[in-house]
C-alpha cells in the first residue's frame, strides 16, 4: 500500500502543464518514466538528494496507467487530488458545463451509502 506515492504522482502531475499533457497522451509511458525518475525525488530538495524506497504496487501502477479514477478512489488516493487532475485531463472533452464532473460522480455511484476508502497516509 503506497497511498502517499499515488498522491505524490497526482500532485506532481497536476501542477505541471507539460506533464499533464504528457500524461493525457501517454499514460502508461508517463507512469513508467515517473516511477523511475520522479518517485524518489524529494520535492523541496536538490535532485541529487533522493529517497531510495518508494515504488508503486501493481494495482496502483495499473490504475494510473489506465486513467482509472474509480480504481484510484478505491485504492484511497486523495479524492481532491484525483478530481483536480482528472478535470485538467478530461473536462475539455465534455462540452456541457460540469459534464465531466457529473460523469465522474456517476462512475463512483456504487460507493453511495457505503464508507469510503481510507485516504490516510500515516
Amino acid at each position: 500500500m503506497s497511498r502517499y506515492l499515488l498522491d505524490k504522482f497526482l500532485y506532481t502531475v497536476d501542477r505541471d502543464p507539460d506533464l499533464l499533457e504528457r500524461y493525457r497522451q501517454d499514460p502508461r509511458g508517463t507512469v513508467a518514466w515517473w516511477e523511475a525518475e520522479m518517485a524518489n525525488r524529494l520535492l523541496a530538495c536538490h535532485e541529487q538528494e533522493r529517497s531510495s524506497w518508494l515504488a508503486f504496487e501493481d494495482a496502483e501502477r495499473e490504475a494510473l496507467a489506465t486513467h482509472d479514477y474509480p480504481a484510484l478512489f478505491a485504492l484511497g488516493a486523495h479524492p481532491f487530488l484525483t478530481l483536480t487532475l482528472f478535470i485538467g485531463l478530461f473536462e475539455r472533452d465534455h462540452p456541457e458545463p460540469l459534464g465531466f464532473q457529473r460523469a465522474y460522480a456517476a462512475r463512483l455511484a456504487d460507493w453511495l451509502g457505503k464508507p469510503y476508502p481510507d485516504i490516510s497516509t500515516c
Binding site: 478512489f73 479524492p79 481532491f80 464532473q101 465522474y104 460522480a105 460507493w111
Partner: peptide, 9 residues
C-alpha cells in the same frame, strides 16, 4: 463532496 459520488449535485 469533492472527488466522490455525491459531488456536483
Amino acid at each position: 463532496e469533492l472527488g466522490g459520488p455525491r459531488q456536483f449535485g
